[in-house]
């Protein structure tokens, strides 16, 4: 959701499929290197991690590596909090991201059962309002927002 919203606020379209398929091109600058770093950090292969770390350091500098590592650290934490406490998706977020979740294929995750299914009327409304929400984001694009090259 936030990746797509981030694209909307900068007038770009990023492919959210890269989230569930690491080999998919996201369109995010240096996205492939960042995805490889995330995968290697969570994986077991030390040699792969060393190479992906170096790739990010060369592409985005040492500060970029630190901030990428900090995001990996954050979500290693937040994901576990969400899954261990059984929280549902926040009401409007659940509805607005309905199409997105189908698109990237995460509805089969075990933790999906923590979010009750929406009724037919709510699902129909979400089909209309979901894309509209992203269009609104495009309109409120922040002027002068910094982007990586």
């Amino acid at each position: 959701m936030l990746l797509r919203a981030s694209g909307e606020t900068t007038g770009k379209t990023f492919s959210v499929k890269a989230v569930t398929d690491g080999s998919h091109e996201s369109g995010v600058p240096h996205g492939a290197a960042l995805v490889r770093l995330a995968e290697a950090t969570l994986g077991d292969a030390a040699a792969v991690l060393g190479a992906s770390r170096e790739e990010v350091r060369k592409a985005l500098g040492p500060d970029g590596l630190v901030d990428a590592a900090a995001v990996i650290a954050t979500f290693s934490k937040m994901d576990r909090i969400a899954d261990a406490t059984g929280i549902p998706l926040d009401g409007p977020m659940g509805l607005l991201t309905q199409g997105l979740r189908e698109e990237i294929g995460i509805n089969h995750f075990a933790s999906a059962s923590n979010t009750p299914e929406s009724g037919a009327l709510a699902r129909a409304a979400a089909r209309v309002l979901g894309p509209l929400a992203f269009r609104v984001l495009r309109r409120v694009r922040a002027p002068g927002r910094r982007e990586s090259p």
Binding site: L2, L3, T9, V19, L42, L60, I106, V140, A142, S148
Partner: peptide, 28 residues
């Protein structure tokens, strides 16, 4: 999503990492 927290990577790069980590953790 339009807020820039002032990191060395931009917001889209941060959200791509966040999304990929969450998918690897199978976090809905």
């Amino acid at each position: 999503a339009s807020d820039d927290p002032g990191r060395a990577i931009d917001r889209a790069q941060m959200e791509l990492i966040a999304g990929r980590v969450s998918a690897l953790n199978e976090c809905f």
